[in-house]
Structure formats: structure tokens, C-alpha cells
């Protein structure tokens, strides 16, 4: 069934995250609840995938995204994600990237970025 899909080193189908920054409100649900911890917030609070190989394709990030800003699909065979080359399990680069992003994100609270709409009933 998944024969036409690219696979990881372990033979699982290779997933592909698509993010829609236009719909994303940078709430951080996907980052907080990814069971394998492969999503991070960038310095603006937008999510980004750092370890494609370990993605199980569970789709929790998609279901817990209140804004329909993530879809988890499958990589086509042979496709190369130039932005996120496959990274080893929390390699030093990934660790560094995660901590940089966390630092940047901590300075910007989501509430400040997106003012809370308020209206009377």
C-alpha cells in the first residue's frame, strides 16, 4: 500500500510535514505535544521539523493544531527536502538548533504576537 512512498532508514514510510505559516498562530501545541520531540519553534515561534527520520507519522501535531496549519503526508520517493536534510538522532547540530530556537521563542510570547480578539457577546 505504501510501496510508492519513500522510506526511512528503518524501512518506515518517510513522512513529510507541510506547514502553513499564513494560518499558524504560533500557539506551540505541535511542538509541545509531539511524542518524539522532533518539532521546534523557530525564533518567530513558527514550528519546524528538525528530525525527519524519527517522525512516526502519528499525526498528533496535525490533530492538535487548532489552526489547520500542519499536515503530515508522505514523502514521494526520491524527493529531497533541501531545507531540512535528514538529521541524526539529536545530533549536536540539532541540539544547538533546538536550544537557539527555544531561547528566541521564549522572548516572544504567542499572546504578544497575536493580540487576543475580544468582543462583546
Amino acid at each position: 500500500m505504501i510501496a510508492n512512498k519513500a522510506t526511512t532508514k528503518r524501512g518506515k514510510p518517510q513522512t513529510k510535514h507541510s506547514f502553513y505559516p499564513a494560518w499558524c498562530k504560533r500557539c506551540g501545541n505541535c511542538v509541545a505535544f509531539c511524542p518524539v520531540g522532533i518539532l521546534i519553534s523557530d525564533e518567530w515561534g513558527y514550528p519546524r521539523q528538525v528530525d525527519k527520520e524519527r517522525c512516526t507519522g502519528c499525526g498528533l501535531c496535525e490533530m492538535l493544531c487548532p489552526d489547520f496549519a500542519i499536515t503530515v503526508g508522505y514523502e514521494k520517493p526520491g524527493a529531497v527536502d533541501l531545507a531540512h536534510p535528514a538529521a541524526a538522532k539529536d545530533s549536536p547540530e540539532v541540539k544547538q538548533e533546538k536550544s537557539d530556537a527555544a531561547k528566541a521563542a521564549s522572548n516572544i510570547s504567542p499572546e504578544r504576537l497575536a493580540p487576543v480578539p475580544r468582543e462583546e457577546k
Binding site: 498562530k25 487548532p66 489552526d67 497575536a114
Partner: peptide
């Protein structure tokens, strides 16, 4: 979209 709810609001998840 994006809808009117606050960032992180559970209503989007329910939707």
C-alpha cells in the same frame, strides 16, 4: 482562515 479564535484555543482542535 486563520479563524477568529485565540492562538492555541481548543475550539480549533474540536473543529
Amino acid at each position: 482562515f486563520p479563524h477568529v479564535w485565540c492562538p492555541g484555543c481548543g475550539l480549533g482542535i474540536l473543529l
